[in-house]
């Protein structure tokens, strides 16, 4: 554990809190992509299958995995029941079949090992790297986003971005660490997908302006 990974995980927790807070206080999930949320649940379920099989890592790991799966399921529950009337499927139209298919192909072509668990882990890593696309696509369609929604997207993106210095740190100082090539490549790709958003967030939202596309 190093400072970058700790901040990354913290950022992930904060993103969950912001999203639930936004929905609860505004009694609405407008501007939030249901499709992205479904993809994140698929990501966590497939990645954390090892809760039931692999040797126990740490209380921290187990607790965080349960929090990520549970909060993701809860978000979907809220969006499909209480706040369903505030969701507009007409602007949430990204074709997620391609993301699911592409991630599966990548996982089948380059799994860390040829086992179901390792393929499902790789699938979840690739899928996570693109799971934000329906959300970003929705922001692009409407041309703007509520400030609180942009805080959510930023915190979620910062999680993987912070893992990049974490990997460099581990590579340099943690002799026991194995380099997870798939996670590193997918993490870099994910951060690249976010770069445009990060730029606008930094130049507009951080200066108190509304998130608006040029």
């Amino acid at each position: 554990m190093n400072i970058f990974r700790m901040l990354g995980d913290l950022s992930h927790l904060i993103s969950i809190f912001i999203l639930l807070h936004k929905m609860q206080t505004s009694k609405s999930c407008s501007g939030v992509s249901f499709k992205s949320q479904v993809l994140y649940l698929v990501v966590y379920v497939f990645r954390y299958l090892d809760l039931f099989t692999n040797p126990f890592m740490s209380y921290y790991n187990t607790l965080m995995k349960i929090v990520f799966i549970a909060s993701s399921a809860y978000t979907i529950y809220l969006m499909s029941t209480v706040f369903k009337p505030t969701h507009d499927p007409a602007i949430d139209t990204f074709k997620i079949e391609y993301l699911l298919g592409g991630s599966l192909v990548m996982a089948l072509l380059f799994p860390p090992k040829w086992t179901f668990m390792e393929i499902s882990w790789a699938f979840s890593i690739w899928l996570e790297s693109v799971a934000i696309l329906p959300q970003l696509f929705m922001v692009q369609r409407t041309g703007e986003a509520e400030t609180i929604t942009t805080h959510y997207i930023f915190a979620l993106g910062a999680y993987r971005a912070l893992y990049i210095p974490n990997w460099i740190w581990r590579y340099m100082f943690d002799k026991k660490a194995k380099l997870e090539t798939i996670a590193v490549v997918a993490g870099l790709a994910q951060t690249l997908l976010y770069s445009d958003f990060f730029y606008i967030y930094w130049t507009k939202v951080m200066k108190g302006k509304k998130f608006q596309l040029p």
């Binding site: 990974r5 890592m57 997870e180 996670a183």
Partner: peptide
């Protein structure tokens, strides 16, 4: 103790 197999990040 043996290092557990698997992925130790989230």
């Amino acid at each position: 103790a043996a290092t557990p197999e698997g992925h130790d990040e989230l």
